[in-house]
Amino acid sequence: MPAPEVVAALRTRFSATPFALGVELPATELLTALRALRDAHGYRYYVLGTGTERETAFEVLHAVRNLESGDTLFVKVAVPKDAPEVDSIAFVYAGAEWQEREIWDLFGVGFKAHPDLRRILMPDDYPGHPLRKSFAMDTPWGYRPAPAPEDAS
């Protein structure tokens, strides 16, 4: 459970909607809210970032932690499917850089002003973003290398 006073402070300053693990924020307030969490509330440690695909939108979820109190707070932001792009928080939390690369790789959610937005898990020439629901999972990914040269035995 996140600290109630932090959630309350976020609700007064931002248009934050609380849920069980933290708050949901509009994309425009993501950077300022995370800066406030880091500088004013002591959430200096970036735990994880992950993505989800919902019916209507992608969700990007960042977890940050206050190491003094041990409190973890999740910050959720909805990303529209027709323009899947959201602000990168890699300049606020350096640890988010690779996590955002992973979300980009698997979900195809772009991050504005990310320092190095490349694929991190899949090969560079991989077609598509495999954790999207539109990705054809029933088609086996057929790896076909170049035919082996004929060797003299």
Binding site: M122, P130, D138, T139, P140, W141, P145
Partner: peptide, 15 residues
């Protein structure tokens, strides 16, 4: 076998 990142058998790559 049908996972997006896995080769369905190493014999696709080498004999």
């Amino acid at each position: 076998r049908n996972v997006y990142s896995v080769v369905p058998g190493v014999d696709h790559v080498i004999p």
